[in-house]
Amino acid sequence: MALPASLLLLADSRLPAGGHAHSGGLEPAAEAGAVTDLPTLTAFLRGRLATTGLVAAALSAAACGHAARTRGGDGGDGGLGGHEGWSVLDAETDARMPSPAGRRASRAQGRSLLRAVREMSPHPALDALAAFSAPHHPLVLGAAVAVTGGSPADAASIGAYGAVTGPASAAVRLLGLDPLAVHRALAELAPQVDAVAAEAAGHARGDPRDLPAASAPALDIFAELHLQANLRLFES
C-alpha cells in the first residue's frame, strides 16, 4: 500500500512540533556516561523502544482508535466519546509516567504537536483534545493520525519510530557521532521498531487499563537528574 503523504508529514522530524529540543533522556544519559558511543547508543535506543516506546506507541494507537470512533466530534458512540474518553486516556497516560519531568515533557510536546496539526488539519477531534491545556503527546499523535485518515497501526508505527529517532538525532548533535553510523544502527533497529508497533497496535481496541506499562527506571532517574543539571541543551 502506498504511504500517504499526510502521514509522512506526521512522521517527519521537520514537523514544527518542538521535537528537536527533546532528547528523550539522551542528554542526561550522555552526561552520566551511560551513552558514549555507537554500541551504548544502540543499547539505549533498544531499551527505550521496548519500554517507553512501546507505551507511547500503544497509547497513540488507542488514541487513534478513540478519535476515529468519535470523528465528527459528536461523541456519537454514546458516552465513551469526546471529552470523557480523552480524560480516561489522559489519566492512563499519567499513570504510566511516574516522572514529573517526563510528564511535563510529554505534555509540552503534545501541546506543540496539537498546535501544528490543528493548523495542518483542523478537525473537531483535535478541538476536543485542545480542552486539555497540554494534552500528552501520544494522544495528540493518535488523534492526528485518525483525522488524516490513518489507522491505529499507523499511529503505533509513527510513535515507535519517533521513540528512537529523537534520541538518535540528539546523540548526533551532543556526542558528535557519525550520522551515517547512527542511521545504520537505526536501520538495524527497524525490524524491532515494527515489532513494537505491531504489539502496540494490538492493544488499540482493548480496555485502556490493560495497555502496556513497560517502565524504564534509568530513564525516570535521568529525567529528574536532568532538571538539576547546571547546563541543559535539551528540554528533556
Binding site: 533522556g25 543499547a43 539505549f44 533498544r46 531499551g47 527505550r48 519500554t51 517507553t52 534509568a218
Partner: peptide, 13 residues
C-alpha cells in the same frame, strides 16, 4: 539481558 544492560532501562545495575 539486553534491557538490563541498556542505559535507558537498568544501565547494567
Amino acid at each position: 539481558r539486553t534491557l538490563q544492560a541498556s542505559g535507558a532501562v537498568l544501565g547494567g545495575a
